[in-house]
Design a protein around this nucleic acid. Structure first.
Lengths: 201, 201
DNA sequence: TCTATTACATACTTATTTGAATGTAATGTT
DNA sequence: AACATTACATTCAAATAAGTATGTAATAGA
């Protein structure tokens, strides 16, 4: 196997493993020995590919978490041929309904990081902010399309609505995590549906 | 000074200091030496009054965080002579507007803990859940009063609405934490106001 | 084919953590 | 007054952390 390819594969393994452990135990509670034990590689391998723990934290956010948000929330919005309010409901509903038990119990990886180190580490905070901004931007765009099409009331503030949808969504994932009970999602979706309906023209 | 009183004071000092450090740096990133350095007491003092770190974590949630939620969100709801939708708006709006810069930057202590250790430590999770339950219960009660008075639509699901308000609120505190920008709060409040209006009969 | 570089593994250093053990002065009790 | 207990401080042990230094086998390039 080519060296370059092998290197890339090892890096990906370390990044993916790090993500899983950060997601499950948190960033601070996960040590580099923890990560490397899981990969069955050595600590030397880690420090050969990455500078330090901070760098791997950054990579996990920029690569894995970013991909999750892109694929789960942003890309589905671009498929906007149908009715916009229905699309909004669908995107959020569908995502929630497809979560695995593990994802339900563990909550949102991005939100967990915000809670744990959003203030302590300003680098992480900014990267996470950029991620939320990408998401919000696409949501605003979608809502604007809805307004143009007359499916959403003209007086609706797209930016405010977008951020509120994100807040609500991140909120449930945390609350569901504490409750460990699916009823939370069901009730949330009921209210979320009403809220989106209240936007329709 | 009486020994009993002195003991209680020392315990309170340790609990309060722990809360501040957990809030600022997170639970895992705060060590017992960190805490005791801040109190100007010794490590011996800590282990004299508390069994281990887990116990102080429990105490911080049960005493300090619980008090914050009680005073900030639950008690204000019991003052329900006026219009209920207005009361809901007021409680959430007012709370947000009165946050200090520090509280804005640090987010919600309860929510931060959920993100960091909500899954890892099931004891913490359950205590936090009980806290949210207290809050939700009072919210449901408040909404029910609104329905009885005809201020809120009969078909509104009180439980679902209560949990959604909590989710939305916890959500913004996290999102505001990443953004570090007050506009988030302003836009959120605008949408939150519309949502509450949509509940009115 | 010889040499340089890469991809790791192993071993080590230094710092830090939790928690226990032990010591001591002040307070409380009889 | 004598003794016990409390409220700490100090010291210590064991585990674990991040990161560094060094060694080695495989690959890449000339």
């Amino acid at each position: 196997m080519k060296q370059e390819l092998k290197s890339k594969e090892t890096q990906d393994l370390i990044i993916n493993t790090s993500f899983e452990l950060f997601y499950e135990k948190g960033y601070n509670a996960t040590s580099i020995p923890d990560i490397m034990k899981e990969t069955s590689l050595s600590k030397g391998a880690f420090y050969h590919h990455f500078k330090n723990k901070h760098e791997i934290g950054t990579k996990v956010i920029e690569v894995i978490i970013r991909k999750r948000i892109k694929e789960g929330f942003i890309n589905p919005l671009t498929n906007n041929d149908g009715n916009i309010p229905e699309l909004l409901k669908y995107v959020f509903t569908n995502r929630i309904k497809n979560y695995s038990d593990r994802e339900k119990a563990l909550g949102c990886p991005a939100n967990n990081l915000v809670g744990e180190i959003g203030y302590t580490d300003q680098d992480f905070r900014v990267i996470l902010k950029d991620l939320f901004e990408e998401w919000r931007s696409e949501l605003i765009n979608t809502i604007d399309i809805g307004k143009k099409r007359g499916e959403i009331k003209q007086e609706i503030n797209s930016s405010a609505t977008a951020i509120s949808l994100i807040c609500a969504f991140e909120g449930v994932r945390g609350v569901r995590k504490v409750y460990d009970d699916d009823d939370i999602f069901d009730e949330f979706l009921e209210s979320m549906g009403l809220f989106i309906n209240s936007l329709t023209a």
